[in-house]
Simulated scan of single mutants.
Amino acid sequence: MRRVFLFALTALAAVASAEKVVVGRLGRAKTAAQIYAAPSAKAKVLSRVKAGVNLVVKKEGSNWLTVVMTDHRLAYIPAQTVEVLPYEYVEDRSQAVVKQTRNTRSTYVASRGGVPRGTTDARYQLAEYAQKFEGTTPYKWGGNEIGSGIDCSGFVKKMYGAIGVSLPRTAAEQARVGMKITRYEDLRPGDRLYFWDAKRGKIGHTGIYVGGGYFTHSSSGHNGIAKDFLSARWQKICVDARR
């Protein structure tokens, strides 16, 4: 089954926005649920979401909600599985904005990842490029090759090498190279994240931030290259970020 993932939204940084178009309301999955091509449980399943995933709700109904997919198609999810929040999803040409409708002082940007329209920034291109390898390569400690096996720092080194940037081999060494990012709200697609390994007492894992609160990495837990949400668990052990 070909999966088309929904917009994943995270409040990251305050912004001012012009020429905004309201796409819908922000919703959050209360339970794991399936996304259908039509408002029927017998319709084709387009995707599945876990509890806590944010969605863009285009239209509300008593039994079904119409949601917006990343390719802008409309799809349907059972209404009882989603909590519709008091936020609007606002979009312009280059960014996605979530605006709190009950408090106009709070406006947030949420990147969708990949290369924004009109940009040639190599880091955005790197974030887009790195995601193409998700699910293609197994995790291998000390591995350096896409396809046969690669570890976390090998993956980051390989991706940065694709844009002409040479990085050290290990995560701990890489964390000493580049401009330091000190706030989560300053993260941009293509930035490198570094995580603490308590058992070894040093930085032991790394990944590439791709936007929207997500990062891609070669993970032993996933047995390969995969995307994860930068949840509280990951933030707790994220001790460095570099650009």
Results as ranks from 00 to 15, higher is better:
residue 90 V to R: 12
residue 30 K to N: 13
residue 213 G to N: 05
residue 213 G to P: 01
residue 167 L to F: 09
residue 195 F to A: 06
residue 159 M to Y: 00
residue 102 R to C: 06
residue 242 R to K: 12
residue 57 V to K: 03
residue 1 M to Q: 13
residue 150 I to H: 00
residue 223 N to Y: 07
residue 230 L to T: 05
residue 154 G to T: 00
residue 9 L to W: 15
residue 18 A to C: 09
residue 85 L to T: 01
residue 61 G to H: 10
residue 239 V to G: 07
residue 207 G to R: 04
residue 187 L to F: 11
residue 46 L to A: 08
residue 178 G to K: 00
residue 117 R to F: 11
residue 74 L to C: 07
residue 35 I to H: 02
residue 210 V to L: 09
residue 184 Y to D: 15
residue 95 Q to K: 15
residue 134 E to P: 03
residue 219 S to A: 09
residue 204 G to V: 12
residue 171 A to T: 08
residue 139 Y to S: 04
residue 59 K to L: 13
residue 193 L to F: 14
residue 66 T to D: 10
residue 207 G to M: 06
residue 233 R to P: 03
residue 10 T to L: 06
residue 62 S to A: 15
residue 2 R to M: 06
residue 103 N to P: 01
residue 169 R to P: 02
residue 200 R to S: 11
residue 158 K to N: 09
residue 30 K to C: 06
residue 182 T to Y: 11
residue 111 S to Q: 09
residue 124 Y to P: 01
residue 37 A to H: 09
residue 51 A to M: 05
residue 133 F to C: 00
residue 146 I to S: 00
residue 56 V to S: 12
residue 154 G to S: 01
residue 231 S to T: 15
residue 173 E to K: 09
residue 122 A to R: 05
residue 72 H to R: 14
residue 117 R to G: 05
residue 185 E to A: 11
residue 184 Y to K: 07
residue 165 V to R: 05
residue 213 G to K: 06
residue 144 N to C: 08
residue 154 G to C: 01
residue 157 K to M: 13
residue 205 H to L: 06
residue 23 V to M: 13
residue 53 V to M: 14
residue 1 M to C: 10
residue 227 K to H: 08
residue 173 E to P: 01
residue 173 E to C: 06
residue 210 V to C: 05
residue 220 S to P: 00
residue 241 A to M: 14
residue 167 L to M: 14
residue 218 S to K: 00
residue 209 Y to A: 04
residue 231 S to K: 08
residue 206 T to Q: 08
residue 24 G to K: 03
residue 194 Y to P: 00
residue 32 A to Q: 07
residue 25 R to D: 09
residue 44 K to M: 14
residue 29 A to F: 01
residue 194 Y to A: 12
residue 21 V to R: 15
residue 145 E to A: 14
residue 124 Y to H: 09
residue 160 Y to W: 13
residue 53 V to Q: 15
residue 30 K to W: 02
residue 203 I to T: 07
residue 3 R to T: 06
residue 85 L to I: 03
residue 136 T to Y: 01
residue 137 T to H: 01
residue 131 Q to P: 01
residue 195 F to Q: 05
residue 105 R to H: 14
residue 36 Y to A: 10
residue 99 K to M: 11
residue 55 L to G: 01
residue 222 H to Q: 11
residue 56 V to H: 05
residue 5 F to Q: 05
residue 151 D to M: 02
residue 204 G to E: 05
residue 157 K to Y: 07
residue 243 R to W: 15
residue 151 D to H: 08
residue 184 Y to R: 03
residue 35 I to G: 01
residue 139 Y to W: 11
residue 70 T to Y: 10
residue 106 S to R: 12
residue 29 A to T: 13
residue 21 V to Y: 14
residue 46 L to D: 05
residue 176 R to W: 04
residue 69 M to N: 10
residue 77 I to Q: 00
residue 62 S to C: 02
residue 203 I to Q: 08
residue 147 G to K: 03
residue 38 A to Q: 10
residue 151 D to S: 07
residue 207 G to V: 02
residue 207 G to W: 02
residue 194 Y to S: 08
residue 59 K to E: 12
residue 136 T to G: 06
residue 223 N to K: 10
residue 233 R to Y: 10
residue 219 S to C: 06
residue 78 P to A: 01
residue 166 S to K: 12
residue 94 S to Y: 13
residue 118 G to W: 05
residue 242 R to L: 12
residue 93 R to S: 07
residue 197 D to S: 12
residue 173 E to V: 15
residue 125 Q to M: 14
